[in-house]
């Protein structure tokens, strides 16, 4: 049984002041997320990622279709005991200290033990700031607090909406580590992001959403091994000279080294040419599509399909 499942999940928002027009934010989303997966939900701004999360959290109601978490409909509030949620750019009760706020959220699950609260604050590195009001927290600290409130009740499934957004490299690393820890503990993590390297590092599978439609789902490994674009050859020329005109088209220079990206069929010819030039080959590796390229291909495809369809949703 999938941990998260959506079937033809669709959401229209009514826009306009006097006359209301439906605007489709999410269109027939079919998705399954399995136990103990780190599932990345990718898409550009306005793709429908946050709408999907809001539908799963029962914050907004679907126009049509359905969604279940742990086999129960998303409208079942008691199921929320087993899930945790970190919204995008979270805002909490800023008149409370971190300890008071986390204690408040813990009490909603019947947890009254201060030791539990302190343990989770320590886990996200907020022990020293535990008696500081949240209004004095930096964005990164708020994000870390947000993670603590999402996991304080030991949930089976954790939903994170753009958990790395606005964080500095250290903060991003900490959040990444925490997500990996949660996976090790056997939890399922569903997170939306547009920071692709994070998705590459963390996800077992990713889904790409654009213009409210699912463009593709697959494991990160599958995407990387789908095709080889070419071969990258790094080399140095004797005496630091410039490459001849026939090579110059495919070469870029960084310091004293050159990088040539050539098609698989041209690899041997290029090596022969480098041998003639008495070049020293420093490195050679396959060039595979990055997640970003895969992502952009799908998003561009969605944009072109929309234009071909006359701009209608």
């Amino acid at each position: 049984m999938p941990v998260i499942a959506t079937e033809k999940l669709t959401k229209d928002y009514l826009t306009g002041f006097w006359t209301k027009h439906p605007k489709r934010s999410l269109d027939s989303l079919d998705l399954e997320v399995h136990e103990n997966e780190v599932f990345g939900f990718l898409g550009p701004n306005g793709a429908g990622k946050t709408t999907t999360l809001k539908l799963l959290m029962n914050l907004v109601f679907p126009t049509s279709g359905s969604a279940t978490i742990l086999g129960r409909p998303v409208s079942d509030t008691s199921m929320h005991r087993e899930i945790g949620f970190l919204p995008e750019a979270p805002y909490f009760y800023d008149y409370l200290t971190a300890r008071e706020a986390l204690s408040y959220y813990a009490r909603l699950f019947g947890l009254k033990d201060h030791a539990v609260v302190d343990r989770f604050l320590a886990r996200v590195g907020l022990t020293e700031a535990r008696d500081t009001q949240l209004r004095k927290f930096s964005k990164g600290m708020l994000q870390r607090f947000g993670l603590a409130q999402a996991i304080v009740h030991d949930p089976r499934v954790v939903f994170l909406d753009e958990p790395m957004s606005g964080l500095d490299p250290v903060g991003r690393r900490e959040v990444r580590d925490l997500i990996l820890e949660l996976k090790k503990e056997g939890r399922t993590i569903f997170f939306s992001t547009h920071i692709l390297p994070d998705a590459e590092t963390l996800c077992d599978r990713v889904a790409v959403l654009a213009r409210g439609r699912l463009q593709g789902v697959g494991s990160v490994e599958e995407i990387f091994h789908r095709e080889v674009h070419g071969v990258e050859i790094i080399f140095e020329l004797p005496g630091g000279g410039a490459p001849p005109a026939d090579l110059a088209r495919t070469v870029t220079r960084t310091g004293s080294r050159y990088r040539a990206e050539v098609g698989v069929e041209d690899v041997y010819a290029t090596f022969a040419r480098l041998e003639e030039l008495k070049a020293r080959v420093v490195g050679c590796s396959e060039v595979r599509p990055t997640l970003e390229e895969y992502f952009m291909k799908l998003v561009d495809g969605a944009n072109q399909a929309k234009q071909a369809g006359g701009g209608s949703q």
């Binding site: 949620f85 919204p87 979270p90 909490f92 009760y93 909603l108």
Partner: peptide, 14 residues
């Protein structure tokens, strides 16, 4: 407005 409700309603609160 402040979106504090998002976290509240993700808890087991009707």
């Amino acid at each position: 407005e402040r979106r504090t409700l998002y976290t509240m309603l993700s808890k087991p609160v009707r």
